[in-house]
Amino acid sequence: MAQILVCGHTNIETTLAVEQFPVEYVPMRYPFFGIQTAVAGVGYNIAKALTTLGSRVNFLTMVGDDFFGEQVKHQAKADGISGNYIVANMPQTAQSVILYDKQGKRQGHTDLKDIQERPYPPDLFQQALQDSDLAILCNINYTRPFLALAQQANIPIATDVHTITDLDDDYNRDYMAAATILFMSDERLPLPPEQWAKKVQQTFGTEIIVIGLGAKGALLAVKSDNFCERFPAVQTRAVVNTIGAGDSLFSSFNHFYRKSGDPYTALQKAILFASYKIGTEGAAAGFLTEAALNKLAF
């Protein structure tokens, strides 16, 4: 059985509960059980969600040769993720701090260290690619050279460019041009989502586009049948923190679409999966198994 290649970022994430935004200054707070630290990051979130759902994953990432790097490897093993492609070639592991309020709004602070200047070993990528039938390449610099390699191997690429404002965006254009499955958020779009999706498809010929609409659900555009419609959000439990919601939507869509080839059902299940996930504090927590998700759906 072929695997999904996931190449993307890992960091140590600390979440902090606050009363509200903006945060009022006080010299000291004691948010009992309001501070949690875990392994997360876009790549790790995706790999863990896919693994929890039952997909087989090759996870490629870079961490530091430090205490936190060892913590990542230990947690990956506990989460059923192989450490074969976790490379400790940085002096320090990236870190993030996420503030979130009682309404689930969040503010992220991410320290990438020097990861944007470091390459991931291409021989390890080629090795992982041979066993894979889908390449999820997160939009962090060290995955950029692998877009062409996946295309040359005729392996479909899925990516999420998150907040985007311009089709000629210097950082994200390569990813948008290469993607078979392209996700993004509506937070900063210069056009209504329907118009933007059509513009993306006309420019890049993208087969499948999903635009996350936050509390309003998601938009799906499918090139083969000229489909472009919105799917409403659902609520399965109280919202605690929306961090990682987009990663969970992206992961679960790719899991179900890869199994069924049906993007419509895949997005419906992904919306349900993401709805349940945001009832937890951390970005890499709250993932359901496929069996549990199916029970929730019915």
Rank of each mutant, 00 (worst) to 15 (best):
A78I: 09
A78T: 12
G80M: 07
I81A: 03
S82E: 08
G83E: 12
G83S: 13
G83P: 06
N84K: 13
N84H: 15
N84E: 15
Y85S: 02
Y85G: 04
Y85A: 07
I86F: 08
I86Y: 08
I86D: 06
I86S: 06
I86P: 04
V87W: 08
V87N: 05
A88G: 09
A88Y: 07
A88M: 09
A88C: 10
N89C: 08
N89Y: 05
M90N: 01
M90I: 02
P91F: 00
P91K: 09
P91L: 03
P91V: 01
Q92D: 09
T93C: 05
T93D: 04
A94P: 13
A94W: 06
A94Y: 04
Q95K: 13
V97Q: 08
I98T: 09
L99R: 01
L99T: 03
Y100D: 05
Y100R: 02
Y100M: 01
D101N: 14
D101P: 04
K102A: 11
K102C: 04
K102T: 10
K102G: 02
K102L: 05
K105I: 01
K105L: 07
R106S: 04
R106L: 01
R106E: 05
Q107I: 01
Q107F: 00
Q107D: 01
Q107N: 11
Q107W: 00
G108F: 06
H109E: 00
T110I: 10
T110E: 00
D111Q: 04
D111R: 03
L112E: 02
L112I: 03
L112T: 07
L112V: 07
L112W: 05
L112A: 00
K113N: 01
D114E: 12
D114L: 07
I115N: 01
Q116W: 06
Q116I: 01
Q116R: 08
Q116K: 09
E117D: 13
E117K: 09
E117F: 03
E117P: 02
R118W: 00
R118V: 09
R118S: 00
R118A: 02
R118T: 10
P119R: 07
P119V: 05
P119D: 10
Y120S: 08
Y120T: 07
P122W: 03
D123W: 02
D123P: 01
D123S: 10
L124Y: 10
L124K: 14
L124C: 07
F125Y: 15
Q127T: 14
Q127F: 06
A128T: 12
A128S: 13
L129W: 12
L129P: 10
Q130I: 10
Q130V: 13
Q130S: 13
Q130T: 13
Q130D: 12
D131Y: 11
D131I: 06
D131Q: 15
D131H: 15
S132L: 10
S132P: 08
D133K: 14
D133S: 14
D133G: 12
L134H: 13
L134P: 13
L134T: 10
L134I: 12
A135P: 15
I136C: 11
I136W: 14
I136F: 14
L137F: 14
L137W: 12
L137V: 12
L137C: 13
L137A: 11
L137Q: 11
C138W: 09
C138Y: 09
N139K: 14
I140Q: 09
I140R: 12
N141S: 14
N141T: 15
Y142R: 11
Y142M: 13
Y142E: 10
T143M: 14
T143E: 08
R144A: 15
R144C: 05
R144H: 13
R144W: 01
P145S: 12
